[in-house]
Design a protein around this nucleic acid. Structure first.
Length: 844
RNA sequence: GCGGACGUGGCGAAACCGGUAGCCGCAGCGGACUUAAAAUCCGCUUCCUGAUGGAGUGCGGGUUCGAGUCCCGCCGUCCGCACCA
């Protein structure tokens, strides 16, 4: 009698059973080895999307597998609940950001629960609740106390749409990462975290992260951007503004110092500002420099331009030698000292600039001393070589010359070897309501005073309005007026809130330990940390992952937690993609069609509404703008959680994009039903099936290895193979046992079906609590192997031979093959290559 | 421009250390069961050829008894950074 697995009935039942048994509660006191599996927590937008489903399914398989292999697993879930969308919703729909967020959380929690994830919901947290952000405020104050927080007036990236400041990391091609608006420069007093104090550590720490993708490590390395070089001073001659008679520059190429033909400063350089006050033409030029955007296309096409200040700088190695000083549009105030010297022979920008302003171009590095006078044309020569035309440096290699110049500068006192970083301190002030209030009080007498810890949390006021742009905290009638904690006089609360990336910089610690009276218990947190496997999108390769690494190291410096790296293992999963469908209207606009609006045919697609063909576009990341999203909700309704989970793991390697398809989910559904049929009760047949036993043990070992490596697609293929083998096998005791084992190894992937089948097989307890099947190593090796017979490297025949057959025997067997004899036509092979248990290659 | 990844059937892909290319799935084709359909089951499915056979892992070279895998040079796609001195 065949039956069908009914996910709609079974899934809620087993979810309730797990909940009742507390199966997925992590026990801090467990003697078992600890395993912390974490997926990046979601922003509560209101609905989960396929990307979440894929992300959490991967983590879930690993978490369940670890439980089966004897680990105490921590697999928590929470909500990255502060941020702009809640405020946008407040402005558009007149709902309070808190209400909107909490409703979204409730909806998404229900959706996640339907997918049957093995999560410890007892540790759920939302960053927007005072019992989370209050502890964050305490940590902020600890960092403050240790000098890792400071306030400074600085030019900031101002997003005119979101009306807030953005960190450098949040500006992409000159636009706000969220709003897409062109970012403006403004001067504001801002709070900063001293991430640059940790630049060396953060860079060097990458080396130890063996279980991180190289790509992410490289991205962080480039972002931190360490450059070693020489910082030195030029004396300035001419009509120099008061107190500006020295110009400090930074170079990574001190070896080329005798190739210098000019010096240049940024338009915002203090010297340029001073000069502009008395030189209207310069002021105009500087304005033009500031106006030009930093967008990729602009930078690439933009001409190198400069303004000759008329001043000259004295070459540090020759007081008789002076160079012109320009204000130039390609010099950045943000990097190094905002001033450079130009060596046109060996730097493309400098060369472009020198050609334009007819400055001398001298070769000072040549491949060999013989080519010292080879002219430089349109391309700067950046190759390694020996120094030429450079007085005492002549004949030195580039690296030797760098050291020699630095040594000379240090000895003579005009410069020193130094390191500069691309990384900037992290500006965390946001002029927003829906974020963690910065626990500082501004007092006219005492300055910025930390809120005393016993007055934490500083709670967001509920009664705020969003009818005008800007920060509702700032215009709240009473909230900001408080007495100074230090002197008691009238003072003002800081009305900026923290960047939401602060919230996500320590949530994984709070998951590990959540006492009421402090952010975490050090001993308990250290039992779990670092996170053994962290899984999320590669879009967080820099921002979130760098900030979290910094925060963890900052906590170590304050003595609160002795963990250097928060995530020992990182996996960045690919996106879920879908075909796109579109046509073009009379006006040439592209009209997108949602998947449910088109009917896929064998050679294209037609719109259901009109019956007319539409173009099948590229397979792309699911996005609202291209309408190629598939909502997981209805899919789970139709096929159940297990089929969706199975599909998420099938086919595509997890780091690559997964193309969603109707056919794919259908296939997953069929397999779930097939598994169900495989465990159909039969009347206890006797007998052994050695061949099947081998396949079984190989599958168990293979799937375990694949899951450990997060190669879920390979594990899935092995499970299919095993299922095929079991189906084909004649009834036997082995076959009956194999079906049960199969259920255990699919349990992490399709847990509801596994429970249902487990119960049907009459097994005690939950398969969620079962252990991973034992593997008999003896059954992993074959006793007979296929030997490939090649002639001149081409496959001509195969033969079976007992494993371990010696070389002479294999050679003899190969020479006995009819096909081989025919090809050799009586000749004796010149050479015979024998690879035991693999092949014989006869070279004729 | 700099840095990185990738390129294998109609599609998603697999291939340990250089050793039988294409496991597994999807789609397709043929068949069984059925009044029929769905579901299920069996078989075929890289390309060319009727078969024997030949070709084949983006392109061109190289190393090797043997290359998807290693080396050199191209082409293409994607990602990150971007005037970083």
């Amino acid at each position: 009698m065949t039956s069908r697995f009914n996910p709609h009935a079974a899934e809620p039942r087993w979810q309730a059973a797990w909940e009742e048994a507390g199966s997925f509660r992590a026990n801090d006191a467990s003697p078992k080895p600890k395993s912390y599996v974490l997926e990046m927590f979601p922003y509560p937008s209101g609905r989960i999307h396929m990307g979440h489903v894929r992300n959490y399914t991967m983590g879930d398989v690993l978490a369940r597998f670890r439980r089966m292999t004897g680990h105490e697993v921590l697999h928590p879930m929470g909500w990255d609940a502060f941020g702009m969308p809640a405020e946008n919703a407040a402005m558009e729909k007149k709902v309070h950001p808190g209400d909107w967020t909490r409703q979204n959380i409730a909806a998404m929690r229900a959706q996640l629960k339907r997918l049957g994830f093995a999560l410890d919901w007892s540790r759920e947290l939302a960053t927007c609740e005072p019992d989370y952000y209050g502890h964050e405020q305490a940590l902020f104050l600890d960092l403050f106390k240790h000098g890792l927080v400071y306030r400074k007036e600085s030019a900031v990236n101002w997003d005119p749409v979101d009306m807030t400041v953005l960190a450098n990391e949040q500006v992409i091609d000159g636009r706000g990462w969220r709003s897409g608006a062109l970012v403006e420069r403004r001067k504001l007093s801002q709070w900063f975290l001293r991430i640059t104090d940790f630049a060396d550590e953060l860079l060097d720490g990458l080396k130890g992260l063996d279980h991180w993708p190289d790509k992410v490590k490289l991205m962080q390395e480039n972002w931190i951007g360490r450059s070693r070089g020489l910082r030195f001073r030029f004396a300035i001659t001419g009509d120099v503004p008061a107190g500006q008679d020295m110009l400090e520059v930074f170079t990574t190429r001190p070896d080329t110092i005798f190739g210098a033909s000019f010096a240049a400063i940024a338009a915002d350089h203090p010297l340029a500002l001073a000069l502009a006050e008395r030189d209207a033409a310069l002021a105009t030029f500087a304005d033009e420099c500031r106006r030009t955007g930093t967008a990729a296309a602009e930078v690439e096409t933009q001409e190198k331009r400069g303004y000759d200040t008329g001043l000259r700088v004295v070459h540090p190695l020759d007081p008789e030698w002076t160079l012109p000083l320009f204000v130039a549009n390609f010099v950045l105030m943000d990097y190094g000292t905002g001033a450079v010297f130009g060596v046109p022979g060996h730097d493309q920008r400098d060369l472009d600039f020198a050609r334009k302003y007819q400055l001398p171009v001298t070769r000072v590095v040549a491949t060999t001393a013989d080519t010292a006078d080879e002219p430089i044309h349109d391309e700067a020569d950046t190759r390694d070589g020996v120094i030429v035309h450079s007085r005492f440096l002549d004949g030195l290699k580039v690296e030797e010359a760098k050291a020699a110049v630095i040594a000379r500068a240090e000895a003579d006192g005009w410069g020193q070897g130094t390191t500069v970083w691309r990384l900037r301190d992290w500006g965390v002030s946001r002029q927003r309501y829906w974020g963690t209030p910065i626990p500082i009080i501004h007092c006219d007498s005492c300055g910025a005073v930390p809120v005393p810890k016993d007055q934490l949390p500083v709670v967001l006021p509920e009664d705020v309005s969003f009818d005008v742009p800007g920060n509702p905290l700032d215009r709240h009638p009473t909230w900001k007026h408080v007495p100074c904690p230090s002197c008691g006089k009238d003072a003002r609360r800081e009305t900026d809130t923290l960047d939401t990336f602060v919230d996500s910089s320590w949530y994984f610690i709070r998951f590990a330990s959540q006492p009421d009276d402090r952010p975490f218990d050090r001993a308990v947190a250290e039992q779990w940390l670092p996170v053994g496997q962290y899984i999320g999108g590669v879009e967080h390769a820099i921002l979130h992952l760098l900030y979290a690494r910094f925060w963890t190291r900052a906590l170590r410096r304050t003595g609160l937690l002795d963990i250097a790296e928060p995530f020992s293992g990182l996996f960045t999963q690919g996106m879920v993609t879908h075909e796109t469908y579109f046509d073009t209207d009379e006006a040439g606009r592209t009209l997108w069609y949602a998947p449910e609006e088109v009917e896929r045919t064998s050679d294209g697609a037609i719109a259901r509404s009109s019956g007319l063909p539409v173009t099948v576009g590229r397979v792309e990341k699911m996005s609202k703008s291209k309408k190629n999203t598939v909502d997981p909700g209805p899919i789970v309704d139709q096929y159940g959680a297990d089929a969706v989970r199975w599909f998420m793991l099938s086919d595509s390697p997890p780091e690559r994009d997964l193309p969603w398809s109707e056919a794919g989910i259908e296939g997953a559904w069929r397999f779930v039903q097939r598994l169900w049929r495989l465990t159909e009760a039969n009347d206890a047949p006797e007998g052994e099936d050695k061949d099947l036993a081998r396949k079984l043990h190989r599958a168990v070992a293979g799937v375990a290895a694949d899951v450990e490596a997060l190669s879920f697609n390979k594990a899935v293929a092995k499970i299919y193979e095993l299922a095929n083998a079991i189906e084909k096998a004649a009834p036997s005791a082995t076959r009956t046992g194999a079906a049960e084992t199969l259920i255990r190894i699919v349990a992490p992937m399709v847990p509801h079906l596994a429970e249902e089948a487990w119960a049907r097989l009459g097994r005690e307890g939950l398969v969620a609590d079962a252990s991973w099947p034992e593997v008999d190593p003896a059954l992993l090796v074959d006793d007979e192997v296929t030997i490939a017979i090649q002639v001149n490297g081409k496959l001509r025949d195969t033969i079976m031979a007992p494993k371990g057959t010696d070389r002479p025997t294999l050679e003899a067997l190969a020479l006995g093959s009819d096909k081989v004899l025919r090809l050799l036509e009586g000749r004796t092979p010149k050479k015979v290559v024998v690879v035991p248990d693999r092949l014989v290659n006869l070279v004729a």
